[in-house]
Design a protein around this nucleic acid. Structure first.
Lengths: 220, 220
DNA sequence: GTTGAATCTGACAATTTGTCAACATTCAAC
DNA sequence: GTTGAATGTTGACAAATTGTCAGATTCAAC
C-alpha cells in the first residue's frame, strides 16, 4: 500500500517518480507497458467473468503470465486495477462511438447511431460496459483525482446537448449538464434491461432513442 | 463457504435448515434476529463510509459487537452481506416513497412527490441509495435467485406507468417496462449528479421531473 | 434446578494480500 | 562485443484477512 512505483497520473503513460516531481520521468519501457497491458487484459477478463468480489490479484497476475509481485508494481491494489480497467473500457467505448458519429448531423440520427454503437460494443465486449460505468463510489470512497467514467461520459453528452441547443435542435429550457446525465441514465438502464430481458436490439434502440429525444425536444 | 446456517430465503425471516426441507423451521429467536440486525446496521455504516473494497467482515462484526465467527453464521461472505444491506435499503426507500404517494393522483404531482421523497431519504441516509441501487452483477456474477433492487424498483415504476397509460395520462406508445427503467436511470443519474455538484434540491427536482414527464407525455 | 436446542465465540487453520532482496533484462556508452 | 547502470520482475515470506468449528453461553421448557 506504500509502494510508490504504481503511482500513475490517469491515462498518461508518463510516470512521475516520487522524489523527482520537478522533472517528468522518461516514458516507460516497452517491457513495462507490455506487462501492464497483459495485467489489464487479464483483469478485464476476470472482473467480467467473476465480478469484483471473487477476482483476486493472484488470479490476475497468473492469467497475465507475470509474477505475483508484479501486479503491485503496476497497481496499488485490486480497486486501483479495476479503476484502470473501467477507464480503459470507457475510453474504448468513447472512441467506438466517435467512429460511428463521424458522418452524423441530426439529433435523431445521432442518438440512434450512438445507441447502435453501444449495442455493438456491448455485443463484442459482454459485461464490460456495466463494469466501466459502475458506481465507483460504492466500491471505494474517499478523494480520488480520477473522474468517474460515467461522469465523464455524461459531460460529453452535455457538450453535445449544448451544441444542439445552440443550433435550436434541442429545447432551450434543457439544462445541458442534467440532460447529459439523464441520457446516460437512460442508456445505462435501458441497455441493461434490454440485454437481460433478451429484447430485440432494433426495438430497444427505437424505444431508447425516442425517450432521449423526448427529454431534449418535447414537441415530437 | 459450506456453512449452511446462513442459508436464507430472501427477506423472509423463516429459516429453512438443510435436511428438513419439508418442514419449515421455527422462527429465529429474538437473539438471532438481534444479532443479524446489529451486523446489518454495522455493515451499512461501513459500506457507506468505506465502500465495498475496504470493508472487512472483521470490521463489521467488531462494530456490531459480535464475535468474528458470528458474521459467517448469518452471511456466507461479504458480498452476501452487502446484498442483504442493499435489499433492506431498497425496501426502506420503497416504503418511504409509498408514504409520500398516499395522497397523490396526477402524474406530475406523483413524480414530484417521489423525487422529493428520494431526496429526503438520501439526506437522512447519505450514500445508502447509491449502494442500494448499484449494479450487483459488477460485484459478483453467476446465478442468484435474488432480484436486483434496481430492477425491482424499475418494475414498480413500470406498474405505475401502465396504470397511467390506461388512464390516458401517459402516452399510449410508451412501453411500461422500458419507461420504468428509464425513470430509474434518470433518477439515479440525475440524483447522483445533483448531489455531487451541490445543486439546489428544488432545481434538481424541477429538472428531473420535467425530463421524466417528457418521456411519458411528449406534448408537454 | 436440569436439560437440550439454539446461538455465539474466538483460537486457529487456511487463504490472500503485500513486501522486497535477489535476480533478470534492457540499453547506452565504449 | 563488453560493461555497468538503470529498469523491471520474481516468488519466498511476512503480514493480514477469511473462514471453520470445538467449546461456551443463552434461553425456553419441564
Amino acid at each position: 500500500m506504500t509502494n510508490n512505483h504504481a503511482h500513475q497520473d490517469g491515462d498518461n503513460a508518463t510516470l512521475t517518480i516520487d522524489g523527482s516531481e520537478e522533472a517528468a520521468a522518461p516514458a516507460p519501457s516497452k517491457r513495462r507497458l507490455e506487462s501492464r497491458k497483459r495485467i489489464l487484459a487479464a483483469a478485464r477478463k476476470l472482473f467480467v467473468e467473476r465480478g469484483y468480489h471473487a477476482t483476486r490479484p493472484q488470479d490476475i497476475s497468473k492469467l497475465a503470465g507475470v509474477g505475483h509481485g508484479t501486479f503491485y508494481l503496476h497497481f496499488a491494489d485490486k480497486f486501483d486495477c479495476f479503476l484502470s480497467f473501467a477507464e480503459d473500457a470507457s475510453a474504448e467505448l468513447e472512441a467506438f462511438i466517435e467512429e460511428h458519429l463521424a458522418d452524423v448531423n441530426t439529433l435523431d440520427e445521432g442518438i440512434r447511431e450512438v445507441l447502435k454503437a453501444i449495442f455493438e460494443f456491448s455485443a463484442e465486449n459482454a459485461g464490460v460496459l456495466a463494469a466501466a460505468l459502475t458506481d465507483i463510489n460504492v466500491l471505494a470512497t474517499g478523494e480520488t483525482d480520477k473522474k468517474m467514467p460515467v461522469d465523464r461520459w455524461a459531460e460529453q453528452w452535455a457538450d453535445i446537448v449544448r451544441k444542439w441547443s445552440e443550433e435550436g435542435v434541442a429545447a432551450a429550457d434543457v439544462d445541458p449538464m442534467f440532460a447529459g446525465h439523464f441520457i446516460v441514465g437512460i442508456i445505462r438502464q435501458g441497455g441493461a434491461y434490454a440485454h437481460r430481458a433478451g429484447i430485440d436490439q432494433a426495438e430497444a434502440i427505437e424505444k431508447m432513442s425516442r425517450a432521449i429525444t423526448r427529454t431534449l425536444r418535447p414537441n415530437n
